[in-house]
Every structure is written in structure tokens, then in C-alpha cells.
Computed example of a mutant assay.
Amino acid sequence: MVMRADDTIDRRHLRRKLTFWRIVSILIAAIGIAFASMWLYGGELGTSASHIAKVSIDGTITEDEELLQRLDKIGKSTSVKALILSIDSPGGTTAGGEAIFDAVRRIAAEKPVVAQVGTLAASAGYMIATASDHIVARKTSIVGSIGVLVQYPDVSGLMDKLGVKLEEIKSSPLKAEPSPFKPTSDAARAMIRSMILDSYDWFVGLVEDRRPLTRAEVVALADGSVFTGRQALEKKLVDELGGETEAVAWLASQGVDEKLKVIEWKPRGGGAASLLLGGSVGGMVGQALGIPNTSDDLMRKIGAERLLLDGLVSLWHP
């Protein structure tokens, strides 16, 4: 039987329609599975299943609105039964540390919070750790560096060599002081020192309030020194040695079901580093340096985020 040309064309059209709808069905199924996964395990999108939330605080600390919003959602989520703060940070701005500290304390008022220190929790990183109810650190973690500083360059000597002279007219002697374009005056040094000491007193007060230490004991430790996890345990800056297993065990002692899954609430992406390097450029440079293809990771690993810091800083420089 000879098949007519019209029948052949119709069969081809039918196959194309079937192929199209098969693809559409697969896509719909994939989207459904993705949404179901996000609903059950979806971090910052919220979950219906009870779990222990985990938030990583690493790199240079700034007043990160996305992180603050994430912490706020964790605090309000009825599915989150406890929070693990995974900290690996040299510190950052005091304002950034203060904002995260306050956000963590709001969560701790409703549910148990434990901090688990990785490689480093120094300066503002340690400040955030003290907001938790229990601090766990590795034996060789670096902990401490309680203090505040302001750093700025003095390029006046270079300007003299280049023959560049700065002219300025200002309303008062301390306006825009200290300036990198001229030696710092005694009055400017006194002003900055007064700010630093006030913030230092506030930082010491936080540690005194949150740790089993007297003010005299905190002041003795708050000379900028850093300690290993073992030393920090002895000095009562941390409560226990270990990692996430010990953190979960402590949560269990607070009535949290230790069989609950630990689910990390991850950021949606972006951040200060992306302003310096676009994703594609950061990825190419990262690949050349053997760093994973993430611009934020690249900027964090080479320390360029610290160039963005302004104001009072609580940061440990190795």
C-alpha cells in the first residue's frame, strides 16, 4: 500500500507535537520536583519540615542586608528548631558585627543558638560568636583579637616627591580629619582615639555580658591577642572543643531533637565583592589562579573585600 504525501506530512507533524509535549511534560515535572525540594529542604525559602538551620559567616564582615534578612526569616520560621552559626572570619566593621550580633540575639531569645568556629573567629567574628548560647571551636582554631582600630594611609611624603600640593578650605579644623594627604594633627589623633576607646569599651562590655568572665578578666584578654581553641577554652572564651557534631550534641542537651537534619540557609548571591569584579571576569581570574569559579570567593580569598571597609574596624590581620 502506497502512503500518500499528505499522510506522511501529517505523521511528521504528529511526531513533532508529541516530542514538544514530552519535553514540556519533563520540564513541568522537573520544576515540580525543584519546588518540592525547596519546600522540604529549601534553606532561605523556608521549609515545612522541622530542622536545624545553619548559617555560614565567613570572610570580611560588613553590614550585610541579605544576611540580616536571612537571619530574620530563620528567627520567624516555625520549622527552624535551632541555629548553628558556622564562623570563619577575621572580623570586619564594628557596625557590621553589631548588626549581626543583635540579629543573632533576637533568634536566641526564641530558640537555641550555637556557634561553631572553623579556622578563625577573630575581632568582629568573635563578637558574633559571643551572641550564641554556646561556642564550640577546634583545638587549633584562632580565637580572640578583642579590640577596635582605625587605619588610614599617609601619602603626604609621596605627594611632596611628585610635586603635588593639596589645597583645602573647611568649616572647622577637624572636618575630614584624619586625611591621608597630610600628617595627622594631635587634635585629630585625640578625636579618633576617643572613638576607638568608646567602641572598645562597648566591645569589652559585650564579652563581659556574654561570657563567664569578670570585666577585669575580659580587659586582661582584650589586648588584641589571639588564642588557639585550646587556649580559648582555658580562658573561657569558648565552651567546648570540637565541630558540628559537638554543636548538635549541645543542642540536643537543650531539648532539640538530634535526629533533625542540619540544613544550611545559603545566600541568594551577590555582595560587595561583585561590585569590584563581575561574575565572568571573576570566574576567569579565579580559574587562572586555581580558585573556584565564584567572584565573591575570589575577592574574599585575595582579601580585596577589606579595601571596601570604612569607619571603625574590628579586624585581625595575620
Score class of each variant (00 low, 15 high):
188 A>M: 08
259 K>W: 07
217 E>I: 13
183 P>H: 06
114 V>K: 00
172 S>D: 06
128 I>D: 00
139 K>H: 10
155 V>S: 02
133 D>N: 09
254 Q>G: 07
45 L>Y: 14
295 S>N: 02
170 K>W: 01
213 L>N: 05
301 K>N: 02
253 S>R: 15
164 V>H: 04
314 S>A: 14
78 T>V: 11
186 D>C: 05
174 L>D: 03
202 W>P: 03
64 D>M: 08
187 A>G: 09
116 Q>Y: 02
170 K>V: 06
250 W>D: 10
252 A>F: 13
135 I>T: 02
245 T>H: 14
22 R>L: 15
51 H>K: 11
302 I>S: 03
82 A>H: 06
17 K>H: 11
231 Q>F: 13
49 A>R: 15
200 Y>D: 12
209 D>G: 09
285 V>N: 01
286 G>Y: 00
188 A>T: 05
27 L>S: 10
35 F>L: 11
8 T>D: 08
77 S>A: 15
215 R>C: 09
5 A>L: 12
45 L>Q: 11
182 K>A: 13
193 R>Q: 12
234 E>Y: 04
81 K>R: 15
317 H>E: 13
125 G>A: 02
96 G>R: 04
158 L>W: 08
201 D>W: 07
18 L>E: 10
49 A>V: 15
249 A>K: 12
253 S>I: 06
84 I>Q: 04
147 G>V: 03
155 V>R: 00
169 I>H: 12
305 E>Y: 07
53 A>M: 07
303 G>P: 06
301 K>V: 10
274 S>V: 09
51 H>R: 11
235 K>N: 14
142 I>Y: 01
217 E>D: 15
270 G>C: 01
26 I>R: 11
237 L>D: 03
233 L>T: 12
117 V>P: 00
222 A>L: 07
295 S>Y: 00
263 I>P: 01
99 A>P: 02
82 A>M: 07
105 R>Q: 15
162 L>K: 11
238 V>T: 08
130 T>K: 02
238 V>G: 06
267 P>W: 01
23 I>M: 08
161 K>I: 05
308 L>S: 10
